[in-house]
Nucleic acid binder design. Structure first.
Length: 418
RNA sequence: GUGAGCGUAGCUCAGUUGGUUAGAGCACCAGGUUGUGGCCCUGGGGGUCGUGGGUUCAAAUCCCAUCGCUCACCCCA
């Protein structure tokens, strides 16, 4: 038997109500902040991600689904959305029509990693990008939107972490400081961290190795070495979060693994998932638009992992979505009425009433069981003596009450069922 | 890429020191008034015991390989 590819999952009919609920919540909240939806292709030319995310990142280095098409163009299934949105922004000059463009998306992403709890090879993210302003109010808005969505889904066990990476200039200065501090301790670092020392020294902060942690603990903090502008912006974000009653902590070791971030970065973690605690990650990326060939334009955004959020919801039992149901199940009492039942079903369906009936020649009892399983609000009995007398029985499934309705009086059924 | 655990019915699992036709609960199907559900009762269908090989008179059970799943590391949503 052929099975779904490793790291991919079917979203089955029984899963759909929870997904829909989440998607509706996401859309509602993004609409309230006036973000407009954007959809981009699932694949792009490979250099978009290589340049956008950074050649040295793990995503680009080892996790992308890259392949050549018949014209030998290297294509990649999108591993994240920001580069794709920026590509569309540049390509269609979206910034020419309005100076601040606020976009959101819900989309599958692809990364070839080993699957584990809250991590898949095809997974789904929703997120937002605000392109065209350097206002720290927008950074705060990103956190607010993400936080509000998670809260609306009933999640409780949340931690908002923020940090500032500063401008590229101040970050470079800080890197030098950090390098000086770590230079003499370098040989005590783990192998991975020694590699990071040369490739991307900030990433040493991500290490979970205890001996590394001890060394890093007393390292100079990036938030103590920010340029004036970043410092002021960081203060504004903190102030806004306080005003919005969003609890947060400053985590100066929060270094996101994508190269494009500048100034504010943030993450929202949940204690209700497995080891992959990050539900939401984001930050400002003031240089990306320019790097991808656009005019210099400041921007900020975030992405949230839908599977992880639903996992947290499940573990916290925070979501109660209504059981699916139908309005009426038509019950055929006598053989030979199949086409009449089908025709009547059609009429009701045209009135936007959800209708189903038996296609398997089953007994009345079996049809009733089916109606019960489908959570039918009503059943309509067609056949027998009443039918000969021009009547049908309409039964309310929760009260058990029945009433006779004339075959000619479809309208009164429609009224009842609506 | 590295490490650990696990693969028996659609699902959750049981299967004693290897020993007759591999079990349970749930789900599914049928019946319990010739036309009425949810509860209950009776009966039924459904499994190459992940796959391949080996040991043995005999393997779901022991050994090897392989595939898959799960979790963790790395990194990230």
């Amino acid at each position: 038997m052929i099975k779904a590819v490793t790291g991919t999952k079917d979203i089955l009919p029984s899963d759909i109500p929870r997904w829909k609920y989440l998607e509706n919540t996401v859309e509602r909240i993004f609409n309230s902040f006036n973000y407009k939806e954007i959809r981009t292709p699932v694949f792009e030319e490979t250099p978009l991600f290589a340049r956008g995310i950074g050649e040295e990142t793990d995503i680009v280095g080892k996790e992308m689904y890259t392949f050549s098409d018949k014209s030998d163009t290297s294509l990649t299934l999108k591993p994240e959305m920001t580069a794709a949105v920026v590509r569309a922004y540049n390509e269609h000059s979206l910034g020419a029509q309005q100076s601040l463009v606020k976009l959101f998306y819900i989309s599958p992403m692809f990364r070839q990693e080993r699957p584990q709890a809250g991590r898949f090879r095809q997974f789904h993210q929703f997120g937002a990008e605000a392109i065209g302003s350097n206002s720290p109010l927008l950074d705060a808005e990103m956190i607010q939107m993400a936080y509000e969505i998670l809260k609306s889904l009933g999640l409780k066990n949340l931690t908002v972490k923020i940090n500032s990476l500063g401008t590229p200039q101040s970050r470079e200065n800080y890197k030098k400081l950090l390098k000086n501090y770590l230079e003499e301790k370098k040989d005590r670092l783990s192998e991975d961290s020694r590699k990071r020392f040369d490739k991307n020294i900030l990433r040493i902060f991500d290490s979970k190795v205890e001996s590394d942690q001890l060394i890093i603990k007393d390292a100079p903090k990036i938030t103590d070495h920010l340029d004036e502008e970043s410092k002021i912006d960081f203060e504004v974000v903190k102030e806004q979060l306080k005003k919005s009653n969003i609890p947060f902590e400053i985590d100066s070791s929060l270094v996101r693994g994508l190269d494009y971030y500048t100034k504010l970065t943030f993450e929202i973690d949940s204690g209700s998932v497995g080891a992959q605690t990050a539900l939401v990650g984001g930050g400002r990326y003031d240089l990306l638009i320019e790097n991808l060939g656009g005019k210099p334009t400041p921007a900020t955004g975030f992405a949230a992992g839908i599977e992880r959020i639903l996992l947290a919801c499940e573990n916290e039992k925070s979501l109660t979505v209504p059981e699916p149901s139908i309005d009426v199940y038509l019950i055929r009492i006598d053989d030979g009425l199949e086409s009449f039942v089908s025709e009547l079903g059609g009429k009701l369906r045209k009135e936007n009433i959800s209708v189903d009936f038996d296609y398997l020649q089953r007994s009345v009892k079996a049809q009733m069981r089916e109606a019960n399983r489908m959570n039918a609000k009503y059943t309509l009995f067609i056949g027998g003596d009443e039918f000969k007398a021009g009547m049908m029985n309409l039964k309310n499934m929760s009260s058990g009450e029945e009433e006779k309705i004339s075959l000619k009086d479809i309208n009164s059924i429609i009224l009842k069922l609506k």
